[in-house]
């Protein structure tokens, strides 16, 4: 769907389902974390669903992605198996990395996911390198790097943008500006603009409402089309907000209450739901029922994952070398 195309019920509902699945998954992780069931730190994607779903719905199955530390949403939007994803987050052997990676290190060749990443900006060179593969092998797929506003102050991101623009690599850079790098406001640590960082390399930039899944989708489609035509990289700067803290359990004392309330009113799921109802593509009751069904499914996923075994000691050195 481009900006001028008509929204259909099937497509609208698929976006709605995708975002609700992520929200339900993340809220389940939140409650498991609060109950002490999730080892270590986990970073929730609630609030930013429109970005992962809007971009992923513009991609083909063989397109590659890289994600960041707040990455469960990208995994699900790319088609990850929720049970294996939850199992990895819980450190179980059924997880994508047999429980050795965890939330910040989810890699899945089947969905062409080169990984969530614990290093801020870490996915950007991987996606750019994947795009180099595509170009070198004359493949039709492209690569997408999801990263946050914080990564826009990492030098390697600019090194990559320079080469991607120079060589017209088929890569899409998606910056999710949720306004906070951990506990610090992006404005307090950033000179210039996020868009300007790519513009200096001649990379086309679209600044979009990251809470509007249709706007994200339309911008992603334009950028994907350019990449597939050999016109090189694009940057989407998606204005968004994380409904939770930096990590599950963060009290967020650094956030302004009024601002948070303002953003809460822009919930991407509610926004799309209202639009579907207004366009008579769904009714409120059926959306509510769909949401309950998905929440129940995810609850079952969590129980299934929780019941799975943790890795055996003997597996410690497995997959260190080939």
């Amino acid at each position: 769907m481009t900006t001028n195309e008509k929204l259909t019920g099937d497509f609208g509902l698929s976006l709605y389902r995708g975002m609700v699945t992520i929200r339900a998954f993340e809220e389940r992780v939140r409650s498991l974390s609060a109950a002490g069931q999730v080892p270590g730190l986990t970073h929730l994607y609630s609030g930013q669903e429109a970005v992962a779903v809007g971009v992923s719905s513009a991609l083909q199955p063989d397109d590659a992605i890289t994600s960041h530390h707040r990455g469960h949403g990208h995994c699900l939007a790319s088609g990850a198996d929720p049970v294996r994803l939850m199992a990895e987050i819980l450190g179980r052997t059924a997880g994508y990395g047999l429980g050795r990676g965890g939330s910040m290190h989810i890699l899945d060749p089947a969905t062409r996911n080169l990984g969530t990443n614990g290093i801020v900006g870490g996915g950007v060179p991987l996606a750019t390198g994947a795009a180099l593969t595509a170009k070198t092998l004359h493949a039709s797929w492209l690569a997408v790097a999801f990263f946050g506003d914080g990564a826009m102050n990492q030098g390697i991101v600019f090194e990559c943008m320079n080469m991607a623009a120079l060589w017209k690599l088929p890569v899409l850079y998606v910056c999710e500006n949720n306004h906070y790098g951990e506990f610090t406001r992006i404005d307090d640590v950033t000179a210039g603009t996020l868009a300007g960082r790519a513009a200096v390399f001649g990379i086309p930039v679209a600044e979009i409402d990251g809470m509007d899944v249709l706007a994200v989708h339309a911008a992603a489609q334009d950028a994907v089309a350019r990449a597939r035509e050999g016109q090189g990289p694009s940057l989407l700067v998606c204005d968004t907000w994380r409904f939770s803290g930096h990590h599950a359990g963060d009290k967020q004392s650094y956030k302004d209450d009024a601002e948070a309330k303002n953003w809460a009113a822009k919930c991407p799921i509610e926004t799309l739901g209202r639009r579907l109802v207004a366009n008579k593509l769904a009714d409120a009751d059926s959306l509510s029922a769909l949401r309950k069904t998905i929440e129940a499914d995810i609850a079952a996923v969590a129980e299934q994952a929780r019941a799975m075994p943790e890795p055996a000691s003997a597996s410690l050195e497995d997959h260190l070398h080939g």
Binding site: L126, G129, A130, A131, E159, M163
Partner: peptide, 26 residues
């Protein structure tokens, strides 16, 4: 030039991109 790739002086990204390339078929 497509197989002997001259790069800018960006060692960090050269190594990082090569990893992404290696993960995807080169």
């Amino acid at each position: 030039a497509s197989r002997v790739i001259d790069t800018p002086i960006s060692e960090s990204a050269i190594v990082g991109m090569a990893i992404g390339a290696a993960m995807t078929g080169l």
